[in-house]
Design a protein around this nucleic acid. Structure first.
Lengths: 158, 158
DNA sequence: ACTGAAATCTATTACGG
DNA sequence: CCGTAATAGATTTCAGT
């Protein structure tokens, strides 16, 4: 964990919210000169605190109306490599997490329709030899979906 | 679903990967004039295809070393409102999805430690009257984690 | 580390074609 | 959709504090 002072945290906060905020706006917000802010942001990137800036697109605008979480399991440990290579190359898979519990992996998957979800499960997941079980949860609605990371501790955690 | 031609899709693709790509670079990439690209990007924002641009921060750099998925259930339908208001205000909760299956909601939660996760479950989740059950899956590692949305159909989906 | 100012580059707007 | 031009604003660099 990098140690970040309060100015650094403010910058990370602001840039997470508005990735294209100008250096002059950042400077005003944190009360430093533009050149100081430039160097801090550069160092935050260098240190790996800031990883990049990304445009956010609307899934529905791209026809991606179906979000699903897919649990996947196998028993042969050799399956892991092939599985990760396969899903790593698959843009429909946004996330793949190794999780505790009865399943090996949890995937976050975006597709257009249930028909495409079926094709994903058949052609991609079951296309990996050794995959034994899957369980799919369909997302009916997303009340919250953000990539923002808190930069300060919450009130409920002393 | 907005209908996007191939240039629009290219722009959405590029901006998702590199949110601060200059208009002149975008213009080179898609083979149009800068002024054309400017207007296309403006329209994509207007139409709600592009929703914004966000800096991406490294969770570990902010001390957020623990990622968890928390399933939550209640039986009284009146609980939903209070629950969503509470977790909407909570930066530790990155996502909240209404899902099919035996649970009402699936949360994606980022905290620093197991102690903080315990505080979250005790003070935030169980602090909402009517919440009956929770189940927490700890993420051991994330093989993939992206917000990129595919702009073209995959090979396995004809 | 932060400052301020100069030089360079980029975004934006508007126009005629 | 193109190309240009003009303005304003942003980025980068650097000598100085």
């Amino acid at each position: 964990m990098a140690d970040l002072d309060s100015v650094d945290r403010q910058l990370v906060d602001l840039l997470q919210r508005q990735g294209q905020t100008s250096y002059s706006d950042l400077a005003k917000a944190v009360g430093l000169a533009v050149s100081s802010v430039t160097e801090r942001v550069r160092k935050l990137s260098e240190r790996g605190v800031l990883l990049g800036v990304h445009g956010q697109a609307a899934p529905e605008a791209l026809g991606l109306d179906l979000l699903a979480f897919v649990f996947v399991s196998w028993s042969d440990p050799a399956v892991a490599d092939a599985f990760l290579t396969r899903i790593g190359a698959e843009p429909a898979v946004q996330e793949a997490h190794h999780v505790t519990g009865q399943w090996n992996y949890l995937l976050k998957v975006r597709v257009t329709t249930t028909r495409m979800l079926e094709a994903f499960l058949t052609n991609v997941i079951k296309g990996v030899p050794g995959i034994e079980r899957t369980e799919t949860l369909i997302v009916l609605s997303s009340a919250k979906e953000t990539t923002y990371l808190p930069v300060v501790a919450p009130a409920w955690y002393g």
